[in-house]
Design a protein around this nucleic acid. Structure first.
Length: 624
DNA sequence: TTAGGGTTAG
């Protein structure tokens, strides 16, 4: 009998025709048992065969056969059928079968069924506990994961290298480093710190919780680093805003002979996008194509994003056109790219193409689209999409959508409408929203409203120096120096420091970073000489410096000097020296580019016949 | 009989 059943389990892999043949040629009891167990795989005429028999049958079933059935279980209903069959045959006494059933329920995210069965299990081993914790982790029920973990401890079950990574990932997903450290202690207590799964999970957890130093320390101490550990460390740096270190690590990884796969390439491409470094992006691009990584949806989308964020919107579009499969993320990335490059119409065209292709937009698609409208001054279109998103696509506007709308109305000077919109909002307001309103007030010199927005902003983030600076700038623009002084005083008393502005540029195979008034660069002398030259030519071309952007309440002459050495100017001057004539100059600034540097760049581009591409914290500025 | 790292906005 056992032999025969083994034969059947083999045939389940085979075609239906073979299966029918097999069923027709065996004894009735065996046939019926097999038919019961695999009923959902059969068509109705075979089910009839099953109904002609009377369960239960007292024959021996091979656990391996049941497990192979469970492995093929298509859905929760199928699993329940198999569950009732194996119960009839008393097979749940077999721990392997029981665990596999538990696992199958968890795989189908049927945690209710899994947990009920878990409660009935007479015997449980560490696999059962791990499967249960992993199942709840999979559906994001972290409270249950920790509840079960407490039981593990209470029952005296030893947590192992399967249990602990699940819990560490829970801490990562909750961004809860305190819990993470508790689990880390458990890891040390059980001597599991050198297990590669446990260790990679810990590195990932610390990095995603932005405790990057601890992540790096663990990573450096790992006895052997595999590809996954390298990938989480590379991604961790990018996540923490140090994408430069990500790329350094990628080079070290290859030097150690670890060969990247597609997932690690996605991480590296995405880090390169965050860094926005054109030359690095080219190397990564060549690596991806040189090593024949196929462009699936995720890698392709990451590549679009990288090219766009490194200032090459055309090559981003090339990649986009080359991709065979596109999903809502790929379309949204392309729309967003057109948006921050200021190509509003192209963003709208892409959106139409997306709809024609049958892809439905999501909340992020609309954030990208509204952002594009706002930055291209497409007011009416923006208002239309804001209505359309809910009416046609059932996408509820979130605070980001409202922020885009406030920005859009604010830029157009329709502050009253913006305020009405903010007052009508039912979703919670965040600092981005108040920031957009404050920015609009700055453009239009609307002091009363600015004070209101700034107060809300400072209530949300009392320790963010940027907000104080913005309000102080608005007072300064209006010549209200007493209020400026008041804010400066407040900042000094609260020991708040302004985030220093810096600009960097890639040249001579390296990164060159400048801060305002910087004289530390080895070529500083040549850079200032170049600036002096430029300024003379600019004056002749009709450039008049607008010192209202230097908001310190000091003498005009001092203000001129401060404008003169803004970090973006130093980077552009260096770019003119360090790159061949006619080559485009790409610079990146950590904060927003000031209005006068914007004018300066426009004039320099005209005089030197260079394309200048400035990426700031908000968008790209192209000067040709 | 149980495991890992990846894409769009901000």
């Amino acid at each position: 009998m056992l032999l025969k059943l083994r034969k059947h389990s083999f045939f389940i892999n085979a075609s239906r025709e073979k299966l029918r043949f097999c069923l027709a040629s065996t004894s009735s009891a065996t046939t019926a048992t097999v038919a019961e167990a695999i009923a959902p795989q059969l068509n109705p005429q075979n089910t009839q065969l099953r109904e002609s028999q009377e369960p239960p049958f007292s024959c021996y079933l091979d656990p391996k056969y049941v497990i192979s059935l469970l492995l093929r279980s298509r859905d929760i209903f199928h699993t329940r059928q198999i569950h009732s069959q194996v119960t009839i045959h008393g097979m749940l006494q077999n721990l392997n079968v029981a665990n596999k059933l538990l696992y199958t329920y968890a795989q189908h995210k049927a945690l209710g069924d899994a947990y009920a069965f878990f409660g009935e299990m007479g015997e449980r081993d560490s696999v059962s506990w791990s499967v249960m914790i992993g199942g709840f982790a999979k559906v994001g029920d972290y409270t249950r994961c920790f509840g079960i973990f407490r039981e593990v401890i209470q029952y005296g079950v030893r947590p192992d290298n399967y249990t602990l990574p699940f819990l560490i990932r829970c801490c990562r997903d909750m961004v809860n480093v305190l819990n993470g450290r508790v689990i880390h202690d458990v890891v040390l207590k059980h001597g599991l710190e050198s297990n590669r799964f446990v260790c990679a999970a810990l590195v990932d957890m610390y990095a995603k919780c932005r405790v990057i130093e601890d992540a790096r320390k663990l990573f450096d101490e790992m006895p052997s680093r595999d590809l996954v550990s390298w990938t989480v460390m590379i991604g961790g740096y990018a996540e923490c805003g140090n994408a430069y270190e990500s790329l350094v690590l990628f080079d070290s990884m290859r030097e150690e002979g670890v060969v990247p796969d597609k997932i690690s390439m996605v991480t590296v491409v995405s880090a390169c996008a965050k860094l926005g470094a054109m030359n690095k992006a080219r190397l990564v691009h060549d690596y991806v194509f040189g090593n024949k990584f196929s462009l699936d949806v995720i890698l392709g989308t990451a590549m679009i994003d990288m090219h766009a964020k490194c200032g090459c919107i055309d090559s981003a579009r090339d990649i986009f056109d080359k991709m065979k499969d596109k999903n809502v993320v790929s379309w949204s990335a392309m729309i967003a790219a057109y948006g921050y490059h200021g190509h509003g119409r192209k963003a709208l065209d892409t959106f139409s193409m997306m709809l024609s292709s049958g892809t439905l937009p999501n909340a992020i698609t609309f954030v990208s689209l509204l952002y594009a409208c706002s930055h291209a001054g497409l007011i009416e279109e923006g208002l239309r999409f804001f209505t359309l998103m809910w009416d046609e696509y059932s996408v509820t506007p979130n605070v980001k959508h409202y922020t885009c709308m406030v920005d859009l109305l604010g830029r157009a000077g329709r502050l009253d409408q913006a305020v009405k919109l903010v007052e009508s909002m039912k979703v919670e307001k965040d600092e981005g929203l108040w920031g957009a309103l404050l920015g609009a007030c700055r453009i239009h010199g609307h002091i009363d409203l600015a004070e209101k927005a700034a107060n809300s902003l400072l209530q949300l983030q009392p320790h963010n120096a940027g907000h104080y600076v913005l309000l102080s700038n608005i007072y300064a623009k209006a010549g209200r120096w007493k209020d400026v002084a008041k804010i400066r005083d407040l900042m000094t008393r609260s020991r708040l420091k302004k985030v220093p502005g810096w600009t960097w540029i890639e040249a001579y195979n390296n990164f060159h970073k400048f801060s305002s008034g910087d004289e530390t660069h080895p070529m500083s002398k040549e850079i200032y000489e170049m600036l002096r030259n430029l300024n003379e030519k600019l004056k002749l071309a009709g450039y008049v410096p607008d010192t209202s952007f230097v908001l310190q309440g000091v003498d005009e002459e001092v203000k001129l000097g401060m404008l003169y050495a803004h970090s973006e100017r130093l980077a552009i001057a260096f770019g003119l020296i360090a790159t061949p004539a006619g080559a485009p100059i790409r610079i990146t600034k950590n904060l927003r580019v000031c209005g006068d540097c914007h004018t300066f760049s426009k004039f320099v581009s005209a005089i030197t016949q260079r394309v200048i591409i400035v990426r700031d914290s908000n968008r790209f500025h192209h000067f040709k």
